[in-house]
Every structure is written in C-alpha cells, then in structure tokens.
Amino acid sequence: MGKFGRYLAIRSLYSILILWGVTLVVFGVTQILPGDPATMVLGPYVSEQGIELVNERLGLNKPLPVQYFDWITGIFVGDWGLSFQYEQPVYDIVVPRMLRTAQLALVAFLLVVCIGVPLGVVAAIYRGSYVDTVVSAVTYVWLAVPGYVFGILFILLLGGPVFYLFPSSGYVAPSESISGWFGHILLPSVTLALMMVAHVLRQTRSELIDTLQSEYVRTARLKGLDERTVLVKHALRNGIIPTVTLLALKLGSLLGGTVLIEYVFSYPGIGTLTVEAIHNRDLPVLQMSILLIAAAYVIANLIADVLYTYLDPRIEYGGA
C-alpha cells in the first residue's frame, strides 16, 4: 500500500468511527428528549393499553441496546422506521427532502465557486487597489448581514410587489417544469451563496497574497518568468489548495446548514424537516435527518482532508 493509500485508509476508517459516534449521540439525544413517544403518536388522552400497544409496535419496550442495534441494522437494510407524525416510512419522507436540499446546495455551491474564487484571485492580484477595496468592503457586509435578512430583502424586492421576478417560496420539481424549478431555486441559492462567497473570497485572497510573497515566487520572478506564468504556474497552484479544502467543507455545510434559508423561503428541504421534527418530537424522522446531515458533514471533512493531502506534496501522511 502506498503512503497515500495508507493515509486514505486510516482517514476513512476514522470518518467511519466518527459517524458511529454520531449515531450514538443522535440515539442518546433522542432518548433524553422530553416527552413520551406514544403520547406523541396518539395524543394526550390515551389509555394505558393504547400506550402499551404503540410501544410494542414501535419496539419501544425493548432494552435500549437492542433498540439501538435494531435501529442501526435497520438503517443498512433500508428500514428506517415509521414517522410518528406522518405514519409513513421515514425513508420516504427524508430522502426526497435531502435530495431537494442537495439541489439547492449544488446550485449555491456553483455560485460560490464561480464567484468567490475568481474574485478572490483578482482581489489578491490587485491588492490595495480600488477593486480590492470595494470587494473587501462588500464581503464585510455580506458576512455581517444574516442570511435570512438577505433572504427577506430578496423576497421583498424580487419576489413581491416591487418586481415580481421570482416566486418567493416553495419548490417545483425539474421534471414538471425546468423554468419553474430554476425560478424557485434561484433566490434561496443566491442567498445561501452570499455569505459563503464572502468566506471563500477572503480565504482565496489572503492565501494567494501569502503565496505571492513567498520565497519560491521570488525565485520564479528572479528566473525572469513573466508575471502571468509566475501567477498561474507558481502561485495559484499552491495558493488555491487551502481554498479547495475550504470549498469541500462549505459543500458539507451547504448540505446541512440550510435550515434558516429553507425556512425563509418555505423550501421543503431537510432543514425545515429537521426543525419540524424537533417541534413535533417526531423522533424517527429527527434521528435520520440529523444522521444524514452529519454524514454529509463528515464526508465533506474527509474529502477536504484527503484533497489537501493529495494536492500538497509537502504534507506528511500522518495518522488521522
């Protein structure tokens, strides 16, 4: 096994361990959530007998380790349990929601990559110039204004009485209407992208500035290379590595961190589902949605680390 292969194996194993830890946390948290599941399913006025029956059906009278074991094995065979609230298989509720969030996240991610990185590079090259100052000022504002405020502003300006350009809420599947899908997904994804663009832009800028001041860039310039080659070949490649890993992390948080934006735009994604599940004490749904979000996070972390190690030949392949 090569050094990189070994690193990959150790790092993946470690991610699996973390995920396992996450299942424990999720399971534990749902156990100590206040409220009794049976009452949640049947409402407050039920007989002892009814509770017994429900507990029996949901497997809640078994010992905890057994419940945990059943839950875990269920995840792997696709039996994710029944939603308390909808009385439907959790799988059928959570997966479509997750996919919708993924669409949102991907569009936002594309925006982040296409706007944040190039602007960051430009700001670094023209450091201290007019362009740089404006870009920095704008990113400061983007970072300070909460996403939901932007969202509401967008709705106010573009989704309402001022200009009716986009619908302000809901979701249309692309199979129904591509333009409808795009219209519904654009505002929330732009809103999502804004803050992240600011982050990515700042990171790209500062890393590239550091690289442009490094000794090996000096070496490159003192070889007589023109500024374009110096930038593209010698600086960008190293300067962009931290950004690439940051992007991977951002994708992870886009997949899970959209609660507020989904809420503002009434977008039926995993974020709103999770909040709903918390409010309704819909434990099976809550468990799975959190687990999926955390998995997206952990996998994004894994990708970020592995990419970093892969891209930067200097890194020693340490343990996890």
Binding site: S214, E215, Y216, V217, R218, T219, A220, L222, K223, G224, L225, H234, R237, N238, L311, D312, P313, R314
Partner: peptide, 18 residues
C-alpha cells in the same frame, strides 16, 4: 535568470513545493 542568476538563501522555502 539568463545573464544574472540568483541562488537564494533558504533552499527549503525557495523551491516551489508543488
């Protein structure tokens, strides 16, 4: 690099790592 070449002080940081 052509007529005047420079060998910098710090070999470790003066070569492009990638």
């Amino acid at each position: 690099g052509n007529e005047i070449a420079h060998v910098p002080q710090n070999p470790q940081t003066s070569l492009n790592p990638s």
